[in-house]
Amino acid sequence: MSGYLVRRLMLLVLMLVLLSMAVFVLFSLLPADVARLSCGKACTPEIIEANRIRLGLDKSVIEQYWVFVKGIFAGRTYPEGGGPAALVCAAPCLGYSFRKNATVLQLIGERLPATIWLALGAFVLFMVVGMVTGVLAALRRGRWQDKSIMGVALLGYSLPSFFLGLVVLFFVIIRWKLLPYPSYVSPFENPEQFFKTMLLPWIVLAILYAAFYTRLTRSQMLETLGEDYIRTARAKGLPERTVVGKHALRAGLTPIVTAGGLDLAGLLGGAIITESVFSLPGIGSLAVSAVVDPDLPVLVGITLITAFFVIVANLIVDLLYAAIDPRVRVAA
């Protein structure tokens, strides 16, 4: 196991290095006018040049990448090499946003709570709903319960998130006035307002994701319910609840957990549409504003953090696999 772990960790580091390089190469395609963008009305070529140097854009992509990596471990200053009124970005430095006058880490840190709450709430909701409906559909295979569950799931699967979000917003908040307009607060500050704000985003994300888990759970259940040991368990006279809960569901759980872990990781990187529609101060809405009002350091930072979550989640899922099933270790 430990050998496998070491191999996987090395692979993780390699992936992170490759990923950060890919991000740098991709974003180096962006117009070099970033220096011009942070320049005002009295914009002269000299000021643009000074900005380029301050932002480190005068260097080659490779050098910029090196400065960036160094910044993560040792911090960096703007301009490089310090000087009067140089900005200090302490390690781990993911860059500094001159648009928002804050370090990228600080900006992401401020928005992480809303994103985490959104992801966790939605995760619990869609896992529970998805698995319960999936089991139900499998047990009633071919009957009306199965058909209606699968029909609703297909609809949920097909709804574009922004349309669903807008429709929910329109009816629940604007037409029926069941909830106030979303205004995010920390749950520790004002739990009531927090729940009123988060309820709809949770439901919207849950509808979008639950559909997938309904389908997955159902097909897993159908597969395991057909296995011999289930028939044996039934033949032994075990109650149906035990057969389904203890044997069938557990056996089919692994792919569900895998998918769940990866989805959770993806959501931690911010749900762009849902956060935007419901005005939540999360990573996703930060990303959109960094695109509209071009803010390169923030984009790079968010891309890396998000990809980092996914890669780590992949590793955790694989390790869990290996812990459960020794054959995986050998195969890898």
């Binding site: 990923l19 974003f27 762009i272 695109v291 984009l299 998000t306």
Partner: peptide
């Protein structure tokens, strides 16, 4: 493939 799948692709599409 792992690398591509790890990217927040909506963000990349928007940014680029």
């Amino acid at each position: 493939m792992d690398l591509i799948l790890a990217f927040p692709f909506l963000l990349i599409i928007l940014a680029l």
